[in-house]
Design a protein around this nucleic acid. Structure first.
Length: 362
DNA sequence: ATGCACAACCCAAGAAAGTC
DNA sequence: GACTTTCTTGGGTTGTGCAT
């Protein structure tokens, strides 16, 4: 990535598909690398055992705040990069008004070119419900991007005992208009059953829902990132290259996000159950299963296939099946069979549950 | 006093899967 | 095939920090 590449991309006159791909494949990977340097992460870390709330409500507040800090840092790192390259034709700005988008890239003369809406998701959050509810009238199809930052707490480099800092797993980039088209096609075609004699739709400012004929402003569900679109939805928008690319990126994004959460939970908990054992990862794309195993315990996202058979083959004593929101069903190998023993709602209580049940003893 | 954005959680109801 | 259980979907709610 050099100065002239960047300048060419930021002109605001690049084909939207090329722009999205460049940000996804070239630009943001560099920013992710820079963000994950200890020096940068350390600016928003928890030092020597400092704690954050564990109850869900207040944990959400912390996640909101982390999202804001990450968003800020993205722009700061970008401006640093421009300085290094002695690129002074463009600079990143923060939009202070409470309106779409969050960040705007401007030419030296102040004219804005590319605009960026940032969403942040913590991998292990049970319900990732950032929403993209900007109406299409407010989106510029050529210059506006929606950027999703997937992050997680991770231990530092060991120089500071007990330090935990956010680490960016990946940044996903979407053309905002194409994603909005998918969102609206899906939303308008899946109204609730109780609209009565009314309709679900839009007024000048907001998405509007209807319940038994009574209209009201939609309440933060429209555009929730994890429920924006489904595979094979019989949709109407004109299938352009950009739209197909957006759909494919979206579906991959949604899958990966849930998988990264599983990986984080598995890597944090499995070694506690079988100290000294190595964690192995197994992926079966045909069945859609992802499994982390360590000693006689497995944590899995299980789409299809026989759990009993799997436990037998791998000589497992405990098999925890995590849903997309990490609700977990625990199976134990008993009397030559896989037996369901309990359900756990929260990943934070999963480890304890396995230990309390003393499942590892016969 | 009112309202908004933010990212997330709660939970009822419907859909799918399992059991008899 | 009817009934039960489990899983997913999606409508609704939350506190903070601010602005109006």
């Amino acid at each position: 990535m050099n100065k002239s590449d960047i300048c060419a991309m930021l002109s605001g006159e690049v084909d939207p598909l090329i722009l999205v791909k460049w940000f996804q494949k070239v630009y943001f990977p560099e920013i992710v690398k820079r963000f994950n340097q200890e020096k940068i992460r350390g600016k928003m870390a928890l030092y020597s055992g400092e704690t954050i709330p564990t109850n869900e409500r207040n944990l959400s507040d912390v996640r909101t705040r982390m999202g804001l800090l990450i968003e800020f840092e993205l722009a700061a790192l970008s401006n640093n990069l421009f300085d290094e390259l002695e690129l002074d034709e463009y600079f990143w700005t923060y939009v202070t008004a409470n309106r779409f988008p969050d960040l705007e890239i401007r030419r030296r003369d102040g004219e804005r070119t590319v605009r960026i809406e940032v969403k942040c998701l913590q991998a292990t959050a049970e319900e990732k419900s950032a929403n993209f509810d900007t109406l299409r009238k407010d989106i510029d199809p050529n210059t506006d991007l929606l950027v999703v930052c997937l992050w997680e707490w991770e231990n530092g480099d060991g120089k500071q005992e007990g330090r935990r800092a956010p680490r960016l797993e990946k940044i996903y980039v979407f053309n905002a208009m194409a994603l909005a088209q998918l969102r609206d096609t899906y939303w308008l075609n899946t109204p609730p059953k109780n609209v009565g004699d009314g309709w679900q739709g839009y007024d000048l400012r907001d998405a509007i829902t209807c319940k038994e004929g009574v209209y009201s402003k939609e309440q933060h569900n429209y555009g929730k990132l994890m429920r924006l679109w489904t595979k094979d939805f019989p949709y109407l928008p004109k299938k352009t290259l950009l739209l197909s690319h957006t759909e494919a990126t979206y579906l991959a994004f949604r899958k990966e996000v849930v998988e990264v959460g599983l990986r984080t939970i598995a890597l944090a908990q499995l070694p506690c159950l079988s100290p000294g054992e190595e964690v192995r990862r197994l992926k079966d794309p045909t069945l859609g299963n992802v499994v982390y195993m360590c000693g006689p315990v497995a944590y899995a996202q299980w789409e299809s296939g026989e759990i009993e058979e799997f436990m037998k083959i791998h000589a497992l004593r405990v098999f925890a099946r995590l849903s997309s929101k990490y609700h977990t069903t625990i199976f134990v190998w008993k009397e030559g069979k896989a037996q369901k023993v309990s359900d756990v709602k929260k990943p934070k209580s999963l480890l304890e549950q396995i230990m309390v049940l003393n499942l590892l003893d016969d």
